[in-house]
């Protein structure tokens, strides 16, 4: 059994380069998604219907169609419109546009959650709308949505496995190809699974470090529940006289 694992691990260079491609294209897609999400959230919160309507369309169309279909459109259908993207380019675009729609909604929620009083106070201090957004609303909104945004990055890394359908040699697709050569099914997909775990945990760790440096006071990612005496919960709260 051990020899099966060492045999499967002979392809470690191929696995690592596939993991590197997965990681790089996920980061590129995430950058695109962040830009689209921020612009989308701004447009959705705009007072002009000309901006609101296309942003709403974007979110509803993308969120309500499968990401695999969007990849097929980017790779197989766009050439009919004269746009030839390489498999990796099509993958980055499809993933970025898809997650951008989710980020639009996440950012919108984060911006809306900033108390109205903050904006009013900024106006009282004679800050213009742009400076209010950049210096008052955005920092607090980012704080609100940070954990959800990191989640989306992890989603991109995992979702990139679908790109094997448009021939991107990413980790899952590469594992499939290696598996068809050495036929060690459990070992090949086991190695791929461990590499995904390493990548997503690294991303989570890096995100936690960035959060600690960027947010003051620090974000509390885990709220510890108050320890209650279990018996006390059964007894109705004592009414104050």
């Amino acid at each position: 059994m051990l020899s099966d694992w060492t045999y499967a691990l002979q392809d470690w260079r191929t696995y690592l380069s596939a993991a590197e491609l997965t990681f790089n294209l996920s980061l590129a897609a995430f950058a695109l998604a962040l830009a689209l999400g921020l612009l989308g959230a701004l447009a959705r919160g705009s007072s002009h219907a000309v901006l609101r309507a296309p942003a709403a369309c974007y979110v509803e169309v993308i969120r309500n169609t499968p990401v695999l279909l969007q990849m097929f459109v980017a790779f197989f259908a766009l050439p009919s419109a004269g746009v030839h993207l390489s498999p990796v380019q099509a993958g980055v675009v499809a993933l970025g546009v898809n997650v951008g729609a989710y980020l639009t909604e996440i950012f919108r929620a984060g911006i809306q959650a900033v108390p109205r009083g903050q904006r009013e106070a900024a106006r009282v201090l004679a800050l213009g709308p742009a400076r209010t957004f950049v210096h008052v609303v955005l920092p607090q909104a980012l704080r609100n949505v940070y954990p959800a945004v990191v989640n989306q990055l992890v989603q991109i890394i995992l979702g990139s496995s679908l790109l094997s359908a448009i021939s991107v040699p990413e980790l899952t697709g590469t594992a499939t190809v290696i598996n068809s050569q050495n036929l060690l099914t459990v070992e090949d997909f086991g190695i791929a699974a461990v590499l995904y775990l390493v990548m997503t945990n690294l991303v989570s760790l890096a995100a936690a470090l960035i959060a600690r440096l960027a947010f003051k006071p620090p974000l509390r990612t885990r709220v510890r529940p108050r320890t209650l005496n279990p018996l006390r919960r059964l007894v109705p709260a004592r009414r104050e006289a």
């Binding site: 059994m1 099966d4 694992w5 099914t185 459990v186 070992e187 086991g190 699974a193 461990v194 775990l197």
Partner: peptide
Amino acid sequence: GILAVSLLAACSS
């Protein structure tokens, strides 16, 4: 996670 993967491997053989 790693343990689960290796257990699977044991089963398959």
